[in-house]
Design a protein around this nucleic acid. Structure first.
Length: 567
RNA sequence: GCGCCCGUAGCUCAGUAGGAUAGAGCAACGGCCUUCUAAGCCGUGGGUCGUGCGUUCGAGUCGCACCGGGCGCGCCA
């Protein structure tokens, strides 16, 4: 509804004043309800046409007066403030929500289109910590946005089942028999420490890698066993968060690729490929237009012939590119920026496209950086356990009538919402300081607050007992500002979803959801629903509750936050 | 040193393609549970939007410089 009106206003104004371009017509929201619902700043228009604010303002009023949803217009300073017909607007908004239901908010941006997104792709050597999980949560939320907008979406997870660290891990796993997922983190730390101290051990790691790459069956099996064990453990934790994938691509299957050979030939032709003094096969990016000295060289193969991560990743990136997606995304930590740039440059030189990168900054602890080596990490599973336990205490008080099992399920969902919202509400490019205690508090701007808002609505609907129809009756009405503010916000959801997806930033939806709940809660406190003065008003408010719940459910599902019946 | 990202209240963050008096939460203080879930609500205090120039009718938002933090810069992934 909101998008409609903005478009409508723009075209109406442009049609009347052909000398004004579309970019010059700016529609904005007034800071306060008494300035109306929609504002048209007149500064640019007045200047362009060489008339006064009131001159242009009156003319615009003249052309938009006939638009059915405009109640009245006021000129204040350089603004033309428009007041909407509340009942009409609310009616249209609710009709749209009730007819689209779980699709409300989608404008079908991805209709008939394909999308591919790769995210998380953690090294199979440790239990994911909250910092790494930022990748998963952002990626998962973007996947949900893509699907919601109608994209046929593939979610890829790149299994880094090769490389130096995995080589070392396999070595040590051989020594420590019966290693389980929990033992891996320990083993990984041990392996790395030992490699630093013991050159012989480190060399054995590289040798093992080379053997793996040559295709030795026994070695391949060993690698597979260790990495699969770790991968499944990681996926289990991620699944607790509601994060899932539909394509797993093993790095070890990208050791050879015809396309990559083509790329290498192009590099040779351009004189960008050479063997350096240490015997490594290296790309000189300056031959491809790279202008800095720093990061100029990109090593493809070690002196012993084994491939580097980047080599395999080139093949993998080409593979993903060939899947013919209209959108090709990858979620990466900011530490990969230069690397991604280098990769893109190489692929571009041979005519291949690269994925669009969504970078996110690190999550820091109050004590400083998270570091697996120093044990200064918040493990995702630990956090979820702790949060779930705390939530359970509260649920036991609040939901006495439920079975212990049901209580536990609720507590777990509260824990998930706490972590997901804490991470997703912050824009990806920002460093976040993760405060363990406030993430566990469940009060204020938190996931549980959102769930609480939903649970309250559900409670009202449950108490009402009967189904609430989708038909908006003749006597439907919006009486108070509090109701109106909710309606306005509901109507803006489709625009929010588009912004969030286009800007590749789930935080936009997260903050929208927060604001919607806050506004609903104000309404909730000021306007009795079941005890409303008259029957018609009661039903109007019930329908508003239902519409709010639907919108909230849609928003929360984009964030992967579960909605609860009660809590 | 070079490159990219960030800098908004004591703390954690919003701020909608430059627009009207800069907003939340936490922490502090004061109120509200015989009324739809108090994981809530209302109120008070708290800001030269890192600093300085500049562009503009108008800058937290755009440009430049500086300061501070994060990340990266050839056998890690």
């Amino acid at each position: 509804m909101y998008l409609h009106i903005v478009e409508d206003l723009k075209t109406t104004i442009i049609e009347r004043f052909p000398e004004i371009s579309e970019e010059e017509v700016n529609i904005s929201s007034p800071p306060d309800l008494r300035f109306g619902d929609i504002a048209v700043p007149l500064f640019v228009l007045a200047k362009k046409l060489g008339v006064s604010f009131s001159g242009i303002g009156e003319k615009i009023i003249g052309v938009i007066r006939d638009l059915s949803y405009i109640d009245r217009a006021e000129l204040v300073g350089g603004y033309l403030n428009l007041f909407l017909k509340r009942n009409l607007y609310a009616r249209e908004t609710l009709i749209e929500i009730f007819s689209k239901k779980e699709k409300y908010g989608s404008v079908g941006l991805g209709k008939e289109k394909k999308a591919l997104i790769e995210h998380t792709s953690i090294n199979p050597n440790a239990s994911p910590h909250v910092g790494r999980a930022r990748n998963a949560m952002i990626g998962d939320s973007l996947s949900r946005l893509l699907k919601f907008e109608g994209y046929d979406t593939e979610v890829h997870y790149y299994v880094n089942d090769m490389g130096r660290q995995i080589g070392l891990l396999v070595l040590i796993a051989d020594e420590l028999e019966g290693l389980d997922f929990n033992g891996i983190l320990d083993a990984y730390v041990k392996a790395n420490r030992r490699a630093e101290e013991d050159e012989e051990f480190a060399k054995r790691g590289y040798d093992l890698l080379a053997k793996m790459e040559e295709g030795d069956e026994e070695t391949r099996k060993k690698f597979y066993r260790v990495t699969e064990l770790c991968l499944q453990g990681q996926l289990e934790v991620l699944k607790r968060l509601g994060v899932e994938y539909n394509c797993f691509d093993r790095e070890s299957s990208f050791l050879h690729s015809e396309e990559l050979e083509k790329v290498l030939n192009v590099l040779r032709e351009k004189g960008a490929l050479f063997v350096d003094e240490e015997g490594r096969l290296t790309v000189d990016l300056s031959k491809l237009g790279y202008s800095q000295e720093e990061g100029r060289y990109f090593v493809l193969r070690r002196a012993n012939g084994s491939s580097m991560y980047g080599y395999r990743d080139l093949a993998y990136t080409i593979y993903k590119g060939k899947r013919g997606s209209d959108v090709n995304l990858i979620v990466l930590g900011e530490d990969h920026k230069l690397y991604a740039q280098q990769l893109e440059l190489i692929l571009k030189s041979a005519g291949y496209s690269s994925p669009e990168c969504v970078f996110y900054s690190y999550i820091l602890l109050k004590e400083g950086k998270m570091s697996t080596r120093q044990g200064n990490v918040v493990l995702l599973s630990d956090f979820l356990d702790k949060a779930s336990e705390l939530a359970l205490q509260k649920v036991k008080q609040q939901c006495v009538e439920l079975s212990e099992n049901e209580q536990k399920l609720i507590a777990e969902k509260i824990a998930v919402s706490a972590i997901r919202f804490a991470v997703l509400k912050v824009s990806p490019t920002k460093n976040v300081v993760f405060d363990y205690d406030s993430a566990l508090s469940f009060e204020g701007d938190t996931g549980p607050y959102l769930q609480y808002g939903c649970a309250r609505i559900k409670s009202i609907l449950r108490k009402y007992g009967k189904d609430i129809g989708d038909e908006i009756g003749e006597d439907f009405s919006i009486k108070t500002d509090d109701e109106w503010i909710v309606v306005r916000r509901l109507s803006e959801f489709p625009e929010v979803v588009v912004n969030s997806l286009v800007q590749r930033n789930p935080a936009i939806v997260a903050n929208y959801a927060l604001e919607l709940v806050r506004r609903f809660t104000t309404f909730y406190h000021n306007c009795p629903v079941l005890q409303a003065e008259e029957e018609a008003l009661k039903y109007s408010r019930l329908q508003l509750c239902k519409a709010t719940l639907q919108t909230l459910e849609n928003a929360l599902s984009l964030l992967g936050i579960p909605v609860l019946e009660r809590m």
